[in-house]
């Protein structure tokens, strides 16, 4: 992957807190990430890791009781210049144009992103017309209602929908789960976004359908050259789709780097634990190595390293007091763990 000019999304010190009845929940605790054009960044984490919240923050789709940190920066490097999404006013026109325009989104539950009272085609055409300025810049073509419909049909065909001319006039509930997921991808990609955010898009699908959707997403990404932010709890899916990955735990990124290398040789004890706990196909009836303990409540974030309560290599007096900073391991890898930091020596 060449150079910083491919840089598309830069997240710096993103922090998100929720005010709830039971107190303050720190869902995302100062994370920094970059996504490059034509590249997929996978974010993997379990419940409470904040992976979904972080990506919702990128689209500014957080609920009303959420607050972004003062110093959070979400920089989108567009051809027309750079823009800080974190600084845009909540209901601004610009934000609306970004969502579904420069940034496409797909979710776990496709029914949630379709309105049940309009046909698939109707919703796609609306989206295309809403973002016609953006599309004109990308494709050099200005769409009207008729050409938008043709474009929508082309997209449905492209995502592997059989009989797109029939499908476009169907309602979302008339499609099967896999088809809906395809339709949602078609909607997201119909505006040729430069960044696609996919939040557990295959989690609700059967394995054979998941395989089809993952293949499709890989193909389309290469074709359109967009950057992809892929959120999942499934290491296997990450291994299949993402060149680079970041592992999140309780709102922090504990390890990041090229996917293959992290899976071959995980550095952070949490990543190691996750991989060791994963059941594998090649060894029958082997005892697994679980990560001890439970994921702590987000209301009671442990002091110091968030993982120290479950870490087999926890160093008393250090890990429970001092938050480890990112340590560069070379070749694009870094880890936030005292075992690797200067403090350890």
């Amino acid at each position: 992957m060449a150079a910083g000019d491919a840089l598309l999304l830069e997240i710096r010190d993103l922090g998100v807190s929720f005010t709830t009845d039971d107190g303050m929940v720190r869902a995302v605790d100062g994370i920094s990430l970059v996504a490059r054009r034509g590249c997929t960044l996978g974010i993997v984490g379990e419940s409470g890791s904040g992976k979904s919240v972080a990506t919702k923050a990128v689209m500014r789709l957080l609920p009303a009781n959420a607050r972004l940190d003062e110093g959070s920066r979400i920089l989108l490097h567009r051809e027309e210049g750079e823009i800080d999404i974190a600084a845009l006013p909540a209901r601004s026109r610009e934000l609306r144009r970004l969502r579904g325009g420069d940034i496409g989104m797909i979710f776990q539950e496709p029914m949630a992103s379709f309105s049940p009272v309009y046909t698939v085609g109707n919703q796609m055409i609306e989206a295309i017309l809403e973002h016609r300025d953006h599309l004109e810049r990308r494709l050099g073509e200005r769409f009207d209602r008729r050409s938008a419909r043709e474009h929508a049909i082309r997209m449905l065909e492209r995502v592997g929908m059989s009989n797109p001319r029939l499908r476009i006039d169907q309602y979302p509930h008339e499609l099967s789960g896999g088809m809906r997921q395809r339709a949602m991808i078609a909607v997201a990609l119909s505006t040729h976004p430069s960044l696609l955010i996919a939040d557990e898009p295959t989690t609700a699908l059967d394995v054979t359908i998941q395989a089809q959707i993952l293949d499709l997403m890989l193909e389309l990404q290469q074709e359109l050259g967009m950057a992809m932010l892929f959120i999942t709890h499934d290491m296997g899916v990450i291994a299949r789709i993402a060149e680079e990955m970041a592992v999140m735990y309780l709102g922090r990124i504990v390890e990041r780097g090229p996917t293959r290398e992290i899976i071959r040789e995980p550095a952070h004890p949490y990543t190691r634990g996750l991989l060791a706990a994963l059941p594998r196909l090649d060894t029958a009836r082997r005892r697994l190595t679980p990560v001890p303990g439970d994921i702590p409540s987000p209301l009671q974030r442990p002091a110091g390293c968030p993982f120290h309560t479950r870490c087999p290599r926890h160093m008393p007096g250090l890990c429970d007091r001092i938050l480890p900073q990112d340590t560069d391991l070379g070749s694009g890898r870094s880890v936030a763990c005292h075992l690797f930091g200067e403090a350890a020596s």
Partner: peptide
């Protein structure tokens, strides 16, 4: 397992007690 909407208040989560 999946975060969206499935996170439930369990034990200390609900009170921080």
């Amino acid at each position: 397992m999946v975060e969206s909407g499935r996170e439930r208040a369990a034990g200390p989560v609900a009170t921080g007690a």
